[in-house]
Nucleic acid binder design. Structure first.
Lengths: 132, 132
DNA sequence: TTAGGTGCAAAACCTTTGCCATCCC
DNA sequence: GGGATGGCAAAGGTTTTGCACCTAA
């Protein structure tokens, strides 16, 4: 699964560390902004390029929800996400099972299945109260 | 769930019909191209606007997979999708259950859950053979 | 030394919007 | 008639790319 040779630049290392240290499923822009203090001159393009590499290495998952930008999640284990359609925030959500799905899907489809993604859409408690 | 007043213009009607008649989970561009013969002068903006309206009405589901563009699926029943990471095509995939998930997710999260989306990623048989 | 990585700026892309003419109800 | 729609073109935002200069290994 890991094919590319790769170097551990401070940019890539910092990116993965930051991603692993947060539970907020950030966007590329957020990561860039957050890292800019630590690594002056950091380019947004670098953030994207590294996110792409990390995704290929299986180190993170890309979440395309509603809203404009992609969200990124350092993978620990297979889990689902729930997105608030009002504030666009992403939260983790564990539902039982999900481990054998890839195998089942492969059997049912004839595909070589590598991963899956389960996303729920709704309104979070905070937004429901604020009725925003 | 349905809130907006709406008119049945030929553009919107044709769009929904086309979407319902195909199993290919098209992109907006594909729909536009396909409809251009039937409705000369049809604007891509109109396609997008109508897809948005139809989605709000619950007539279709938006699939954000890999690849750049969104794919659209006329909803019949709740089902999952499987995306080929090589050719980017989307196929339907029925996995058991899935009916109570929204309720379970709501209970587990405190959100007001309206829908969910399950997407598998892999390589389809055709692309595996072609090794493309 | 050298292939991969980075910054910067420009490009590419998809999607949305403003505006005004048009059409449905 | 009046408000929802459509067409067109321009804007908006995110992500990607080209290129020259670095830098980890």
């Amino acid at each position: 699964m890991e094919k590319q040779p790769h170097r551990n630049t401070k940019q890539r290392t910092a990116l993965l560390e930051l991603l692993r240290s947060t539970k907020s499923h950030p966007t590329a822009a957020w990561l860039h902004e957050r890292l800019a203090g630590e690594i002056p001159g950091l380019s947004l393009a670098t953030v994207y390029r590294n996110l792409s590499v990390l995704a290929m290495q299986g180190n993170l998952q890309i979440i395309r929800s509603r809203g404009d930008a992609e969200h990124f999640d350092a993978i620990a284990s297979s889990h689902g996400h729930i997105v608030c359609e009002a504030c666009d925030r992403v939260r983790d959500l564990d539902l039982p099972d999900g481990e054998n799905w890839d195998r089942e899907a492969a059997k049912a489809s004839g595909y070589e299945v590598s991963s899956h993604q389960l996303i729920f859409f709704g309104i979070c408690p905070a937004c429901r109260k604020g009725s925003r």
